[in-house]
């Protein structure tokens, strides 16, 4: 619905954004792909030639790989379960009539706006410190031996910190979805004699299923990439080295760029698999 003139203007005006993003995507991606087939050690000889798929094989067969995969899965999975379960409960709670709803919602959402380094640092020191942390005081109060959280229960601690950051996001989106539920549907079910739990199971949950899927996919993409939380707390020690952190260490700490790049390609493929599912949902909504 437009003229040739406005169409060519549109193409011109879209060009900067498209070209920038295309460059931002293609140039580094191509470089990563090239590096991944090379033995490339910037501090120890630089570019040492092509090695085929050796980096890919070595990345997967290294002793650090499978622990990193499992750490990644545990962290991502743990955070997803916690944020989705508590997100649904919290969204339902916040949807109930109450006094000071606006303020409560602000309190719940606040953690999302805390920068990752701050939340990691505050949790690490003020809460999880084995001597002066609040948890240590709490444990002592109940006569228990304080835990060395970030070494004895490292994965759980990271999951706790990250869940605290992402629970607001899940809650907010699920709350938005709940509020779009037609209350007449619930009233109709009530007239039909469905008790509260059945109404939740057969009406509320199915209504939320798409929002839950979206939360799941978006969080997965962001959680696969969490970095600052680990960088600040454990630096990847005590079994908290995720794939992202492993690649980071290969590339910047041990300066084995070829190996790190091969890992990067794996990460890109993994993220793309999740992204395809997310984009399907987004695409469907764009049509509507």
């Amino acid at each position: 619905m437009a003229t040739q003139h406005s169409r060519s203007a549109a193409r011109l005006m879209m060009a900067p954004a498209v070209i920038l993003l295309l460059g931002w995507m293609l140039v580094p991606l191509t470089m990563t792909l090239i590096f991944s087939f090379k033995k490339y050690l910037p501090l120890r000889g630089g570019d040492l030639g092509w090695v085929g798929f050796e980096n890919y094989a070595r990345f997967v067969s290294s002793s650090a790989f499978w622990p990193a995969v499992s750490a990644t899965l545990i962290i991502v999975g743990g955070v997803l379960v916690i944020t989705l379960v508590f997100g649904v409960l919290l969204a339902i709670l916040l949807d109930q009539p109450m006094w000071g709803q606006g303020i409560v919602r602000i309190l719940v959402i606040a953690p999302f706006f805390v920068m990752p380094t701050v939340s990691a640092l505050v949790w690490k020191n003020i809460f999880m410190d084995p001597v002066n942390g609040l948890f240590a005081h709490l444990w002592k109060f109940f006569g228990a031996e304080p835990l060395e959280w970030l070494s004895q229960a490292s994965l759980q601690s990271i999951i706790l910190i990250v869940s605290w950051q992402w629970l607001p996001f899940a809650t907010l989106i699920l709350l938005t979805a709940i509020q779009s539920l037609d209350s007449e549907q619930l009233e109709a079910a009530e007239m039909d004699g469905a008790p509260v739990l059945k109404r939740f199971w057969f009406i509320v949950l199915p209504h939320l299923s798409r929002a839950m899927t979206v939360v799941l996919l978006i969080q997965t993409i962001f959680l696969l990439g969490i970095f600052a939380e680990i960088f600040v707390t454990t630096q990847g020690a005590f079994g908290t080295r995720t794939l992202t952190y492993l690649i980071y260490q290969r590339v910047l700490e041990s300066q084995n760029v070829g190996l790190g790049s091969a890992g990067g390609v794996y990460a890109i493929i993994l993220a793309n698999i999740v992204a395809i599912f997310l984009m399907r949902i987004v695409g469907k909504n764009l049509d509507a």
Binding site: V18, F35, I247, L252, M279, L286
Partner: peptide, 21 residues
Amino acid sequence: KDILMWMLSTKMLPAVGVLYP
């Protein structure tokens, strides 16, 4: 629509994958 979707999908590129470049 395809351009928009493609733009959004670049957002999902894992940063660590292109760190060194």
